[in-house]
Design a protein around this nucleic acid. Structure first.
Lengths: 218, 218, 218, 218
DNA sequence: AATGAATGAGTGTTCATTCAT
DNA sequence: TATGAATGAACACTCATTCAT
């Protein structure tokens, strides 16, 4: 449970900041588990209520609809997942001389998101599944990622390109490649084969190497 | 419909080879569409029947259960998607002297899968969604990919490593990176932003470049 | 199979007398089996067709509806079961001097119906089950039993009463007791516990003793 | 409704003893009626719900499946029907000197079961129909009747045989004859011809006479 | 705030019956 | 005559949601 602390705090703040009651926390915990296990559409509110140890009606006292419950869980997570990418180390000041700049940049975002994914694997699964079908999530993604993160990302890339640390591909191609690689790693690491023996440190280094050399400037 | 020809032929052969009746083809077409639009669990057989222009009972004459319908669609697709990767150009004979060997290898698999994904985008979406929840699909993936493709893939990589064309990472890391990159591209290209202006040729070249330099040997 | 000969002949004659085609016979055989196993309402025509080895449509070529199939089977059986009770040994000429008269009377009807039940146990089960719910069967029972058998039965009883061989109970009470006893035996013998070790001869004698002394005159 | 009081109390106790809600009682009443009218397999839950004046879902809130509803009704009835036969008058102490012992014994069980059948005719019908097809009912019958009642019955019969009040037939034959006669009477009286003019008192006496003389000793 | 009985629309599936071949 | 694909109404059952307590 403790590993969900962060996201529950985020959910809490996203709601009204008055603190989650114990029942509410049980509901959220149960919902996350069950949504991740069987998918949103195949999860029933009655099963969530049962696992949470509350009455069926109680869920609807806190969340108007089942979809509302989903969004209350997933939206803060999406924000949370993105917020760090907006932090100061995304501004050009942080870029040292090449090529350390690019490498530091990658390390920061990757290692940070790695820890977050480790602590919130079920939530990651839910987002990746449901974003395909929930327009509200797509809208949130656009407003948070496309409008907030993407421009900052671009600015950083442009800086790195000027340094010659990054190849002259269109930014959206570069961003796609980075994200594909990172998400592919996180999904494999935490969702597909979490039980394998993983040398996390080395695997992270290889992933960074892959991106750095794949996208490194001449 | 014509763009689905290939996969319908595969479905047909996977069943009994006696040819799909028109109604059956309508059912499959409708099911693929609707499963892709709303996800398997949120699709109703009554909606599929309506879109296919058949009675609901007709679906169950051909497919014992709704899940059976899903598997009849998805399983052949998974096989079809993987089979080309087993072809002769995966054997060492095709590897020219470095570094053309690696590049040719990447070009072959990527361009080929690109065309297939273009023609079967909805099926790609269904697989990526449902493999998370359908044990039958996971089993099929294991028996087809892990047991058939992976070993061949490894042999090719080992050869390329000996040539010095590929970096000395663990094979499963290399394979994960390649797949992440390719699937990330296909998903973006055909599922997330199919309406964008895409310079497919260039994008493919960039993708190959990314992998080649990211994983290139010494 | 051979033990059903009689009743199939009866069914045949009840229909058109032109002889049952092999398919028809398979259908009847399968229907009898399945109706007896699961009850009429829980039997499906498709299962009957499958067990009979014919197409689903074939059943409806011979029998307009499922109920028609039931009646085609059960009605002749009911007649067949009753016809012998109409035979000459029911008339007063057959009654020897008391008390042999009563005993002979009982022996005749019981032993005869015993053999018939042995050969047609599944049909017996079907009748006993379905007569409760099928008005057509009730009508047939009335027209055959109440109108034909009952009066003859009464005449025999009256004769036996005059002899002093039978107690002066209302005829319908006597008949009910005889039938209850006989049917109770047949049901136990052939439907409830057909696998027990049965001393049929002795059991029949005991049954006759029971009725004779229970209803004996004076 | 009042005539069902007894059995509804039994059903209630069999469940959780917390008392039946009005809706539950309506559902049971409707189910008993409809099962008796058309048979379990031909009864639909939607018709039961309609007659009970509740929503169809309400049935399934109280009874997990349709079969569960059947068993909840029938199992307590079977127990209830059998329990009195376990009472003290089945022990040898109650047998006076011959032949009153046997007669009293018969009178007790028959008159008692007669009243119970009168009040629960539809339930009697349901049991007799469904025991043929529901393995759960057969199991219950075995555990209640064969294991509990039968042995007590035998002990009483052995006592009566020693007195010379009962003929030296195998116990299971005697029991079968008694049950056939009693059930045959109850079925005729309450199910087949409940509308006839019945002289119940006399008919009971005749039934007892029949059994007593039919099975009387020496 | 919390409950849980009640709802009724909707689900996947079955099945007797029809009909073109 | 026989087939079996097709039908559509009916079925048992589920579920998100409501509301009196």
């Amino acid at each position: 449970m403790s590993e969900f602390k962060d996201i529950y705090n985020a959910i809490n703040e996203a709601q009204d900041g008055k603190g989650l009651t114990p029942k509410q926390e049980q509901i959220l915990k149960a919902a996350v588990e069950i949504f991740a296990e069987k998918g949103y559409a195949s999860s029933s509110t009655s099963e969530i209520a049962a696992r949470a140890g509350v009455a069926e009606g109680t869920i609807f006292r806190h969340y108007k609809t089942k979809k509302d419950l989903l969004l209350s869980i997933v939206t803060p997570f999406m924000t949370q997942f993105t917020v760090p990418l907006l932090a100061s180390h995304f501004t050009k000041e942080v870029f040292d001389e090449p090529p350390e700049g690019f490498e530091q940049f990658l390390k920061k975002i990757i290692k940070n998101r790695f820890e977050f994914a480790r602590e919130n694997a079920p939530l990651l699964k839910i987002v990746l599944q449901e974003i395909a079908f929930q327009p509200e999530l797509q809208a949130h993604y656009e407003s948070v990622f496309l409008e907030e993160v993407f421009p900052k990302f671009e600015r950083a890339l442009n800086e790195l390109k000027e340094q010659g640390s990054v190849i002259d591909f269109p930014n959206r191609s570069i961003i796609r490649m980075i994200i594909s690689t990172v998400v592919g790693f996180l999904v494999t690491r935490f969702l597909l084969a979490p039980e394998s023996d993983w040398e996390d440190e080395e695997e992270l280094d290889r992933t960074i190497h892959f991106i750095m050399y794949g996208l490194g400037g001449k």
